[in-house]
Design a protein around this nucleic acid. Structure first.
Length: 117
DNA sequence: CTTCTTACA
DNA sequence: TGTAAGCA
């Protein structure tokens, strides 16, 4: 199928499809006229990429993760799970900082409001 | 008309 | 990521 159909079926813009390919996340075939040709497995791969992207994983990590996600029979090798885990931990650390800042702002607002009124 | 690439915002 | 230009 060509890019327009692949876009409809996957719900991903043609722009994004070309972008994923440029980033090495997917590979598409080429017709005689130079148009990209997408197959079912590629569409499914795109959906997986969307999930990974939505979870906040960087493209670089997804690129290294994908081949191990499709080829490995019994799951993903722990090597990559460790990287994903680290990314999750950094995320948790950022959330902790933001939570503290939120609490600090709440305290500031309470104080400022009570003092003003 | 559809896609392709490249480039700009 | 969207959009536009200039080709094929």
């Amino acid at each position: 199928m060509q890019i327009s159909e692949a876009s409809r079926v996957s719900g991903v813009s043609a722009r994004a499809l070309r972008y994923y390919e440029a980033e090495g996340l997917i590979v598409s075939g080429r017709c005689a006229n130079g148009f990209r040709d997408y197959c079912r497995p590629t569409i499914e791969r795109v959906l997986v990429i969307r999930e990974l992207l939505a979870s906040g994983l960087p493209v670089r990590l997804i690129r290294e993760l994908l081949p191990h996600l499709t080829d490995e029979p019994g799951g993903v090798c722990p090597e990559f799970l460790v990287e994903v885990q680290r990314h999750r931990d950094r995320l948790a650390a950022r959330i902790a900082v933001l939570s503290d800042q939120q609490a600090a702002l709440d305290a500031f607002l309470r104080k400022a409001r009570s003092a003003g009124s």
